[in-house]
Design a protein around this nucleic acid. Structure first.
Lengths: 254, 254
DNA sequence: CGATAATTTGAATTAACTCAACTGTTGTGG
DNA sequence: CCACAACAGTTGAGTTAATTCAAATTATCG
């Protein structure tokens, strides 16, 4: 609502992708330093988004893609009754808003789960730049394609897995994404509530809670509210080895 | 396996997007006639794919995207135990293989459900062409983005709907896609088996069968094996009005 | 025409859900 | 700074939608 007038000082400040720890996980991947510089120039630095604040809402005109720099964001829809349906969680290095390219309008909410810094990429400018930087165009297509693969995997998980396998898969995904960022793969804080996890995995929040307890009883996890420690990563992994596809396309770098 | 040597006569034959009834549903949408001509020149005409034949398999090098011209294709993965997990069904005007851009390798099988004609788009050439035709680049991004939206909708469906709502949604999707192609929205043949539908919707094949019977008993459908007639479209639609998101992004043209 | 595969239908089972009560945590205003 | 309200999480008990297993029936294809 309120305009950016109070933070003009931040506007136009050059964003340094080149110095960013996310550079190999993010859009600049595969670009040479000159092209990264051209990309940097179109990125808007935004003021941090605080817990509970929205990046965008359904129906809003699509102008920009957002890359999470720090923090965490959930995307979700809402029913007329007011129930939230969580679509996904977005961690540093991950892009939000890709579904809106389709028809120029956002189709979901994006809400910060904690204080979050984002890079804003005005899409029309990004598209123009893509046409002149082949590796950027390629990287854009890869990112979209990757999102399709990730979602296809999610569909497969929802179709073919028990509640326990879903939670195991979720925790391994979070673990993997944290570890790529250089954080611990076995000790982290979840930014989202049990309700959010349940909504995302198609489970009742009570089921999620019970599963955390059960995994802790089995010595696989140590759970203290949002603080999760994986005590037996191999056992957690073995929980979803069963009906996994032969050729898994996931877990490819960048 | 066998090379194209027996059908060289078909190779290099110009594919006429301009005369194709799918042109407004397909990649050429939004391109002017000159650009459509440039696109046509890179499309390979392939010999028809017969029922049961594969377009590609997991692990195979990604070279081309495919657009279904006529017929139907299912994409699926396979577990070590040999169980199929259906990811999606692809009807005329729809593209297959978008998930493989990500890492240059296919991650699933694509199998013809009936005799199917496809347009093959060599991806590296398509990418080069995109860089010089802004509207083609835009259309590519839109197509990928659309796929993301469709999959997000599927995730929401699997997370929040009963078996009955899933089947209703599936039938309405098929109906919609047929009607866009100029075919009847209320009278069509399903190319896929009950097993395939069940796998796609995360249901046991017996459940799918029972639901068809129940919808027929309620006067909503007339089902004779693969032949489905929708007798009460409004009632079918009302079955999934309940926990639908407020702002649905789906059902946008092209 | 016969064999194999696909579909339908029935009966019993179960994983996850809903409802409900309770506990612990967090943040806010007096 | 504490009290209390609102929220988030845990645990228990009973219910149910969809499953699995089983059997019968109907297509389809060589």
């Amino acid at each position: 609502m309120s305009a950016n007038s109070k933070v003009v000082s931040l506007d136009g400040i050059k964003v340094a992708c080149s110095g960013c720890s996310l550079t190999t996980l993010c859009l600049p991947f595969g670009l040479d330093s000159e092209d990264v510089e051209r990309l940097e120039r179109i990125i808007k630095r935004n003021r941090p988004v605080h817990r509970g604040q929205l990046l965008f809402s359904p129906g809003e005109q699509f102008r920009s893609l957002y890359v999470i720099k720090t923090g965490a964001v959930k995307t979700f829809t809402q029913t007329p009754a007011g129930d939230e349906h969580v679509i996904g969680f977005h961690l540093p290095g991950e892009m939000v808003g890709l579904d809106a390219i389709q028809n120029d309008h956002h189709g979901c909410f994006a809400k910060a789960l904690e204080t979050t810094a984002v890079c804003e990429l005005p899409f029309d400018t990004l598209e123009h730049l893509s046409a002149t930087i082949p590796s950027l165009q390629h990287q854009m297509l890869r990112l979209l394609s990757r999102e399709i693969s990730v979602e296809a995997n999610m569909i497969s998980l929802l179709n073919n897995s028990t509640a326990e396998e879903r939670l195991a898969s979720f925790l391994l995904s979070i673990s993997d994404r944290f570890s790529r960022r250089g954080f611990s793969a076995v000790d982290f804080f979840l930014a989202m509530s049990r309700q959010d996890i349940g909504s995302y995995l198609g489970l009742a929040l009570e089921t999620v809670s019970r599963l955390f307890t059960r995994l802790q009883d089995h010595g696989i996890l140590k759970v203290d509210r949002k603080h999760v420690q994986i005590k037996d990563l191999d056992k957690l992994r073995s929980m979803l080895k069963h009906h996994l596809p032969c050729h898994s396309t996931l877990d490819q770098p960048s």
